[in-house]
Amino acid sequence: MSPNHLLLRLLPGLLAVILALALSPAWAGESAGMALLESRCASCHNISGPAPATIHALWARKAPDLFYAGNKFRRTWLVSWLQHPVRIRPAGEFYADHVKPGPERDMVDESTLAPHMALGAADAKLAADALMTLRAHDDLIAKEHVPAGSISRSMGSLVFDKFLGCMACHRVKPDFGGLSGPELYTAGARLKPAFMASYIRSPQSWDPKIWMPNKHVSDTRIVQLVHYLQALSKGGSHE
């Protein structure tokens, strides 16, 4: 049998395999999800990396990087938030572009902050599934192990506010804390524990020029902080 005849004989089978793959629900869903990210998200979010390597690239960033979204976010939160987005960064990104001097202190200029678009339920699930496949920093996540546990609100607050000074830039309830970092009263629902631990350990490993410092937080304190943030996102009280 000549090569051409062999190809002709195998062709229907090959086409059937390709067709089956194309119609496979999982493959089709992922592909549609990535297409959704490309068309609806990629104009503001970086979905392919790398993170800004210079200050001016940092300033030019319009929205948080998503190329490690699968390492960072909890899927259930993504599906919900994408349908009902609420501002996470009180001063936007880049914060200094949304702040202006005021009579007592610099103030967030709300007029410069645009709301995040909302997706329908089906698209939110598609986007969340696609985002969960973006895992550029599996290496960093693999280094973390956060044991399950708990911490009292008062002890957590002491660690967060007094021992480490995190409240300078982050809010742990809607009306208390700094504004240049993302709010953290929903962090426990929003973020994976290993991501929180890794980011606290070395923000620069995720985002080399970010305005969050590496405070060389000990392993014990990192676990306490993660448990505290998880506690904050549970229940209605932010005390």
């Binding site: 914060y95 001097p101 202190r105 610099d106």
Partner: peptide, 15 residues
Amino acid sequence: AQCHGLQGNGRGVNI
């Protein structure tokens, strides 16, 4: 500037 202020006067957005 997030704490020391855009003008360096100690009156940043976080204070």
